[in-house]
Nucleic acid binder design. Sequence first.
RNA 1: CGGGGCGUAGCGCAGCCUGGUAGCGCACCUGCCUUGGGCGCAGGUGGUCGCCGGUUCAAAUCCGGCCGCCCCGACCA
Length: 480
Amino acid sequence: MAEPKLPTRSEDFSEWYNQLVLRAELADYAPVRGCMIVRPYGWALWENITAALDSRFKATGHVNAAFPMLIPRSFIEKEKSHVAGFSPELAVVTHGGGEKLEEPLVLRPTSETIIGHAYAKWIRSYRDLPILINLWNNVVRWELRTKLFLRTLEFYWQEGHTAHATLAEAEAETRQMLDVYTDFAVNEAAIPVIPGRKSAAERFAGANDTFSIEAMMGDGKALQAGTSHNLGQNFAKAFEIRYLDPAGELQFCWTTSWGLSTRFVGAIIMVHGDDQGLILPPRLAPHQVVLCPIFKNDAEKTAVLEAAHRLRAELAAAGVRVKLDDRDNVSPGFKFNDWEMRGVPLRIELGPKDVAQNAVVLARRDRPGKEGKSSVPQAGLAAAVTARLAEIQQSLLDRALAERRRRTAEPKDYAEFRQAVEAGFALVPWCGDAACEAEIKAETKATLRCIPLEQEKGPAGHCVKCGQPAAERAYFAKAY
RNA sequence: CGGGGCGUAGCGCAGCCUGGUAGCGCACCUGCCUUGGGCGCAGGUGGUCGCCGGUUCAAAUCCGGCCGCCCCGACCA
């Protein structure tokens, strides 16, 4: 035993997560409290996430740009609810070049304000609209309690910022980007999510309407995995983003913003991981396949490595992200455990017996032990591997969906509701009153995650808390 | 900021009560041997014991102060 085993998820989910992030070499703690170093393996995963999202943003007409990290503090103060929301968590730069600054600068917590400033300069006419810009950057929020990937003082994300001529266009954009996130989560990360609308209490500071995708983690808690905001004309009015319409009338723009962060890496860990470690969805895994050669002596080594290099090249040529683990200072058994902990979806074992039969052993990460192993011929390996990866991708999604269903309840009364949110999600009629929502939060620690977009028609019943008639149903859960 | 825990080798820890040459496991390095589920043997490298001060012939150990980190809560993508 090289390393002590991870804690199991059932005995200590939080500690399982912390240790796994460190041991899998996704990230490490930085010298400053709450900050994180993203290590190459973690960054490779993030790069695959960014690639999958970026292509979707471009396909929907967006372009990338870069905005400065330093923002005049007065900018934050221009939009009333925005300043209220973000002031407590701002990092402020007061000195530069050895001199006290005339006006303090904040490290951007998000870029709505500096975007507002620029858009006000750039937009004159309805012909300038819409503006559809996305930023890949980092932001800083002075959070009190941090956790690797889930909540760090500095995090990486993308933030989209758009400006439109009409409310209808802004609404459509907000919803379109929520759909993009949903599509990404389900089809790339194999994470089932619930797209929905946030309550007023949970809304982004400065938004008229906030939508999110909510995912269930392996311990039944919810994670907001992406958000899309309809900012109405709030920022347009604060920053005077105006245009002349075809009739020559001066109008305020309608703006949106939407973001998805490195927090999503945490979601992947917590949704798919098991007691052995990570299980990465094939479409995002840095290494989709790891090839482990096995041999006893020089003659076997030569033959096995020759085959290994040939197969590695074949797979790479077929577009498979394959890693050949040719370390000779650790045993095959060690490598099996190591790569399982690090979540590689498919392993190829290649030893003298396989070489003799022109075959390899495939071992699926999602099915532990012998059950997940099978011998397949070397001829046509790339096709077999590609097919197997697609199966794993699908099985991860199916499994996560089944788990979410198992942990989602539709309690009939408040007593049942209190039990339900201890185990997972509760879908219940809600009257829409913020007071009920606040009482529920105070009494159960469960928050309103979202009002799902997909609702059955007609009245939903009676509010689980106050019994008043409810027009809609909402998901409540404890959340990260 | 409230509650809890911890700072001794890269990591995990023991030693502290009862002061007296700083230890164990893993990792790392060298060599041999091994390799189909976390190989083995032998030899080695590595620490101003979180920081400052006090007591003492002598402090990882006793006393005082400070700092940092982690976990649980309030805040949050």
